[in-house]
């Protein structure tokens, strides 16, 4: 990163803190609550190996005798298991914390992947124009006409066919990141392309071109820093979407394997026990997922409004 971009970023940060955004953050209780909830969940999930009361990934520590224990406030509850245990005797609270970690990892990584891909294609499309532009944008439009979940299912299906079951289980998390990332790149590409079209005609780009800089450098060193503004908003909203998509895929049984359960996998496992009264196995992961997605979404919505000059 060059000095100019660092300075620019610092400047941006300072302006952000001093200005309307910070003010609007302080003035909305809901956003503050959402931020706190998100922070707690992200910290709880990230540091789950240290914070969780049990290590549910270590099979030697779980015992079938403890299975199907209800939450602690119910009859037969056990103080060791705050939210009860599942059919194999895993502590639900720890399982949720570990599960949220997988969900968040997949969410963040796939958003990052989609962003890198989408921004690169958007920049190329906007700057190069002509045939390349048409080609990329038509491909984007075709993909937009399919729901993201369908694309993710398709990509996962291809990998499932190409890899044997064992390899697929091992790589499941990365396949998931690839599948979700590939189904979300379009928004970034379209946004960046339109900003690039605007920036392309400005004097500083002209000046850079006159000095003989190669297009690659013009695009990444000069245009890119000026089109990143809206990306943060898209990324935040997409993070919630990516988490939901991962949970949906895992719920359908095509996501991460049960040996490394995400929130969606936990809901799927618990689903089998809904009729028999062991509601805590599915309800708690469900609530955790809903709260996490809602909090992230509220943050995203607020960020969108706060950064929108028309609403200021």
């Amino acid at each position: 990163m060059s000095i100019t971009t660092t300075a620019r970023a610092l400047d941006l940060l300072q302006r952000a803190v001093n200005s309307d955004i910070y003010h609007s953050f302080r003035s909305s209780k809901m956003v503050m609550v959402a931020a706190v909830v998100s922070a707690v969940m992200i910290i709880g999930a990230t540091f789950s190996p240290i914070l969780a009361p049990h290590n549910t990934l270590d099979l030697a520590s779980i015992s079938l005798i403890d299975s199907l224990t209800p939450p602690v406030w119910m009859e037969d509850g056990d103080s060791r298991f705050l939210l009860g245990t599942d059919d194999q005797g895993r502590d639900m609270l720890s399982a949720i914390m570990h599960g949220a970690r997988v969900s968040l990892f997949v969410g963040f990584a796939s958003v990052l992947f989609a962003m890198v891909l989408g921004v690169s294609l958007g920049l190329i499309s906007g700057y190069a124009g002509g045939f390349l532009d048409s080609f990329i944008m038509r491909a984007a439009e075709i993909q937009l006409s399919f729901p993201a979940i369908l694309i993710a299912l398709l990509i996962d299906g291809i990998f499932r066919g190409a890899l044997d079951a064992k390899t697929h289980d091992e790589l499941a998390v990365y396949v998931m990141i690839l599948a979700i990332g590939l189904s979300f790149w379009v928004q970034y590409a379209r946004t960046v392309r339109s900003s690039t079209l605007v920036e392309k005609g400005k004097e500083y780009v002209e000046a850079a071109r006159v000095t003989g800089l190669p297009p690659f450098l013009i695009v990444f060193r000069h245009i890119l820093p000026n089109v990143t503004g809206p990306l943060l908003v898209i990324a935040t909203i997409n993070l919630a979407l990516a988490i939901i998509t991962e949970a949906t895929l895992s719920f359908l049984g095509v996501g991460v394997p049960p040996t490394e359960p995400s929130l969606g996998t936990l809901i799927r496992i618990g689903n089998d026990f809904l009729f028999s009264g062991e509601w805590w196995i599915t309800i708690f992961p469900g609530v955790a997922l809903a709260v996490l997605v809602l909090a992230v979404n509220l943050l995203g919505d607020w960020l969108r409004d706060a950064l929108n000059p028309k609403l200021r």
Binding site: D58, L59, A60, S63, L64, Q88, G89, P258, T259
Partner: peptide, 21 residues
């Protein structure tokens, strides 16, 4: 579920089983 239980029980005596269900 039986296989998962067997895997957990063997883990207690030190045998690590990689389950492919």
């Amino acid at each position: 579920a039986i296989c998962q239980a067997v895997v957990a029980m063997l883990a207690k005596v030190g045998v690590k089983v990689n389950l492919l269900a």
